[in-house]
Nucleic acid binder design. Structure first.
Length: 448
RNA sequence: GCGGCGUUGGUGAAGUGGUUAACACGCUGGUUUGUGGCACCAGUAUGCAUGAGUUCGAUCCUCAUACGCCGCCCCA
């Protein structure tokens, strides 16, 4: 048997419906914020990621999906969305657009070559936004608020933003120096991993899980205390704007976001699902004012954000959120002989063209089996065909719940469904109760 | 790249170095000459991830590989 590659998933059935719904919500919220959709290649020149992310980081040295194409070109499956968007911005000379900033969003698969574990796969889906060409703190705040609003629209309430500022180059350098000086005399008291980080990437020590409760780290210098006048003022403005947008945020000095290209604002969106561990981080982003220049474009301040669809879907399922996903048919057509089947073919077409969700049997199953299948598909109505009635142009429509039956002329079928199904939808929509105990509400929504 | 645990029908799973691999759910058919959900009956893995080894004999022991779950590193 041929199996799927390690770290990939097939998304089918109800899960696929949830995914599709999540993507629809993303699209609709993006439209309101006037972010335009951008599709960039799934693979790019390896060099793009080396220059964009930094070729000494582990990401580039051991976690990218690289391949050589038939023309001997070095290619890499994109590990994240930002580099491709920035490349496109430069290549298409969008910096010349009359209406900067360029506000775009993407949604697609990303690849990283690593061992799969909870909430991490080799192929993953992310959506994200990039705003290129504005240094206004308003944009920082808007991107954060946008991310939270999407989660909220998906039913993920109470998410919090953890925010921090790395400041500009000068502030970052000062901080890094202060941190290493502070840690130097204490280095032996930290875990083995931290000792290695001290040489490679000391900022990451702040995020260590082993030493998280260690007083040394708790009292370590904080980035925001090392911001210069201008960076500090900028950060304060972002926070002020977040207040205006009524965003709940926590200033979290532990957030440093490892990557070189970040400066000033950095943030993560945190859910608070018990037992969800690291997967509670639903997204993150920050400002990258130097990246466009680094990739050969004109100096352009940018801010962006990305979020994993896999994690969003997991969080939605874990939180047991009821999504408005269709899980039922309007009608299922039953027949037994060839003559009736021809009517079934004709009637299914009529109903579908009129906008109803309809299915029928394709395997000449027994009537009993057709009833079972109709139940499984949660059909609201059953259409029962029998040769005798058909001769007179009659069909039987049965309500699956009340078992009430009507025998009507075939020509009136559409009117019948228009009337009955719309009534029912109004009744369902009028219920705003959401979650409650069985018996308190008489709506038709299922209560578990 | 490193480590722990796992892999038995459509599903959840029990089990044993030796003729027919439990049980449950599901599915299919029947009891009901064409009207479901209940009940009863019957059918439903020549096979226990793959490959090799040990053995008279392996699903069971050993090794390797693949995939899965979880953790580390790292983080997008």
């Amino acid at each position: 048997m041929i199996t799927k590659p390690k770290g990939t998933v097939d998304i089918t059935g109800t899960d696929a419906k949830i995914w599709k719904y999540v993507e629809e919500v993303i699209d609709s919220v993006m439209e309101k914020y006037n972010y335009t959709y951008i599709r960039t290649p799934i693979f790019e020149s390896t060099e793009l990621f080396h220059r964009g992310i930094g070729n000494t980081t582990d990401i580039v040295t051991k976690e990218t999906y690289d391949f050589i194409d038939r023309g001997d070109r070095k290619m890499t499956l994109r590990p994240e969305g930002t580099a491709g968007v920035v490349r496109s911005f430069i290549e298409n000379k969008m910096y010349g657009n009359s209406d900067l900033p360029v506000k775009v969003y993407y949604n697609g698969t990303m690849y990283r070559y690593e061992r799969p574990q909870a909430g991490r796969n080799r192929e993953l889906s992310q959506y994200g936004v990039e705003v290129l060409g504005s240094d206004d703190p308003f944009i920082d705040a808007e991107v954060i608020s946008l991310a939270l609003n999407i989660n909220s629209m998906l039913g993920l309430k109470g998410n919090k933003v953890h925010i921090n500022s790395l400041g500009d180059q000068e502030s970052r350098d000062n901080y890094r120096r202060a941190l290493t000086e502070y840690l130097k005399p204490h280095i032996d008291e930290l875990c083995e991993d931290c000792k290695a980080r001290f040489e490679k990437n000391p900022l990451r020590i702040l995020d260590c899980k082993v030493d998280a409760e260690n007083a040394i780290l708790k009292e370590a210098p904080k980035t925001i205390d090392y911001l210069n006048e201008e960076s500090k003022k900028r950060f304060d403005t972002v926070c002020e704007y977040l207040d205006l947008l009524q965003v709940e945020y926590v200033i979290d000095p532990k957030i440093v976001r490892g990557l070189d290209y970040y400066d000033h604002t950095v943030f993560e969106i945190h859910a608070d699902i018990p037992g969800f561990g690291n997967a509670n981080v639903l997204g993150g982003g920050g400002r990258y004012n130097k990246l466009v220049e680094q990739l050969g474009g004109p100096s352009t301040p940018c801010v962006g954000f990305a979020s994993g669809l896999d994690r969003l879907v997991m969080a939605i399922k874990e939180s047991k959120i009821d999504l408005p996903i269709r899980d039922h048919l309007d009608a299922y057509i039953m027949y037994v002989n060839e003559e009736e089947k021809k009517y079934a073919i004709y009637l299914s077409q009529e109903l579908r063209m009129a906008g109803f969700v309809v299915d029928t049997d394709y395997g000449n199953k027994s009537l009993k089996a057709q009833f079972k299948q109709a139940d499984r598909m949660k059909s609201t109505y059953y259409i029962l065909l029998n040769s005798e009635d058909l001769k007179e142009g009659l069909i039987t429509i049965r309500n699956s719940k009340t078992k009430e039956e009507d025998k009507i002329m075939m020509e009136y079928m559409i009117y019948y469904f228009d009337e009955h199904l719309i009534d029912q939808e109004i009744e369902e929509d009028s219920c705003e109760c959401g979650h409650h105990e069985e018996g308190e509400c008489h709506c038709h929504k299922h209560h578990e």
